[in-house]
């Protein structure tokens, strides 16, 4: 039985359904974009920290998708899973950073290129063919206020610590 006010409500109901659907769709696209960008970053970068950063970005994209599904289905499943993902990501970050410190200790920097001993016997080592020079813009020291005293920029003194 259709009541006179039902038409608007029905249209509203249909509109709500479509709204939810499109919301879900959009969130999934955003999640996919985050995931994809994270993948590109992970595959391209050499700094261990930045690599891990991209992994976290991938996780974030997944979290967005999960929450979107949870909202769509109207239950807690998505959010609960994301909470656990969060917890696990935190553990993983801790251990990963501990390992990065160990690796830094052994190689003196955070470059992934030093850790290729799993390669096959007759493969040659991947080495840097050319090391790009830093841009002028990258070596900009921060501009301090007149009150601050700029410290010495002695380029001969080694800047990195020998140990952590």
């Amino acid at each position: 039985m259709v009541a006179p006010g039902d038409g608007k409500k029905l249209r509203e109901g249909v509109a709500m359904v479509e709204y939810e659907l499109h919301l879900l769709h959009n969130y999934l696209i955003v999640g996919a974009l985050l995931f994809g960008i994270g993948t590109i970053g992970f595959l391209a970068r050499r700094n261990m920290i930045v690599m891990f950063l991209c992994v976290e970005m991938m996780l974030q994209g997944v979290s967005l998708s999960l929450v979107a599904w949870g909202r769509y289905h109207g239950n807690w499943g998505g959010q609960v899973l994301v909470i656990f993902i969060l917890a696990v990501a935190a553990c993983e970050a801790g251990i990963a950073l501990a390992m990065f410190l160990m690796l830094y200790r052994r190689s003196g920097n955070l470059d992934m290129i030093f850790w290729q001993s799993l390669r096959e016997e007759n493969q040659s080592e991947t080495v840097d063919v050319e090391i790009p020079e830093p841009d002028e813009a990258d070596h900009q020291w921060p501009i301090l206020t007149p009150a601050g005293i700029e410290p010495d920029h002695d380029t001969e003194k080694p800047l990195h610590r020998s140990h952590v």
Binding site: Q116, R119, E120, T126
Partner: peptide, 17 residues
């Protein structure tokens, strides 16, 4: 196939992706 195993993590990630 051996030439794909270069010991570099990103290449392994490529393979899985």
């Amino acid at each position: 196939l051996r030439s794909t195993q270069r010991g570099i993590v990103q290449y392994y990630a490529f393979a899985s992706i």
